[in-house]
Amino acid sequence: MKVRAVFGLIRLGMATLCAVALVHRLAWGLSSHTIAGENFFAYLTVQSNCAFAVLLLIAGIVAFRRDRDPRWLTIALALTLTWTITCGIAFALIVWQAGLRGIRIDVPWSDQLLHFWLPGLAVAGWTLAPGHLRVPWWVVPVAPIYPLLWGLGAMWRGPQVGWYPYYFLDLRQVELPEFLVSATVALALFALVGTAIVLISRTQLRFDPLRFRLGRREHLQR
């Protein structure tokens, strides 16, 4: 089996895992009464993982048909990977802070998969998978735009439904200076993760089957 086909299967498997985890997280939240169904898709983690699952499905199919991913797919994967990884880091910080304050936060396996395992596997795949193009540097300043728009939308929706995805978006719970600092740090973190993704896309760690075939052909001709 070709190397690209193997990574195509991995991508399809990750897309399936992501979809299963999203369904389980919704069912767990409804059964434990920790979330209302209409608020589930308001989380940035859920939105970014939905996009990630769709892109992984497309990328898996593309890997079976082409030696290289199209440019738009590489950029889209870089952006969604930036969002999912950053959400995982933020979630870990929230759980850590809650533990320090003695606040219990239940973390089902689906949350662990969505926030930690899938982003980690995606980074490994991003580093090693053949057929990626280099991600352009303009992705770094673009990556925080969607989270910024999401945050503004959550703050606009919050007073209407009486619910916020995260407490630091509710200006009734945090002072304006604390909110501004939190927002700045969060956006900077998205840019930092985006920078790491761009740098990884420019490494020479991945196995490129096209270059391997060309190099082997040149070697046999000598």
Rank of each mutant, 00 (worst) to 15 (best):
D67W: 01
L114V: 03
P141T: 00
I103W: 00
R222D: 08
E178S: 07
G13W: 03
T82W: 08
A76S: 15
V62E: 12
W163T: 06
V140M: 08
L17Q: 07
G125N: 12
R65H: 13
A191Q: 03
I89N: 12
A19E: 03
R104C: 00
D208E: 10
S31G: 11
Q97M: 09
L199C: 07
L171F: 00
W138E: 05
G158C: 05
L9F: 12
A183P: 13
L199Q: 15
G8V: 02
R157Q: 15
I103L: 08
G125R: 03
L152P: 00
N49H: 13
R134L: 08
W96P: 01
Y167P: 12
D208C: 02
L192V: 12
R213G: 11
I200W: 14
A98Q: 13
A90W: 00
D208A: 05
T195H: 12
L56G: 11
A188H: 07
A183E: 12
T34E: 10
A129N: 13
P130L: 00
G102A: 03
L189S: 02
P70M: 04
V3P: 11
T127R: 04
V174A: 03
T127K: 03
W163F: 03
P147A: 01
Q47E: 14
V135W: 07
D69Q: 12
T45E: 01
A59Q: 06
A183Y: 13
T16V: 07
A143V: 03
P119I: 00
V140N: 04
Q160S: 10
R172K: 15
F179H: 14
R68A: 11
R216A: 13
L12C: 04
A27C: 01
L149F: 14
P141F: 00
C87I: 02
I75Y: 07
I94N: 14
P177V: 02
L17S: 11
T45R: 01
G120S: 11
I10T: 06
H219P: 01
S32L: 02
T74S: 11
M14S: 05
I94M: 14
V23P: 02
V142P: 03
W28I: 00
F190M: 02
A78D: 07
S48T: 15
Q47R: 05
M155E: 13
L30E: 06
A124I: 15
W126M: 01
R134A: 13
A124N: 06
G88P: 12
L73H: 14
H24K: 06
R25T: 10
Q173L: 08
A21M: 04
I75R: 15
L171S: 04
P209N: 11
Y146W: 14
Y43E: 12
L210E: 15
G8E: 09
A98F: 09
P70D: 09
L176D: 06
R104V: 03
Q112C: 05
Y43C: 04
R134C: 07
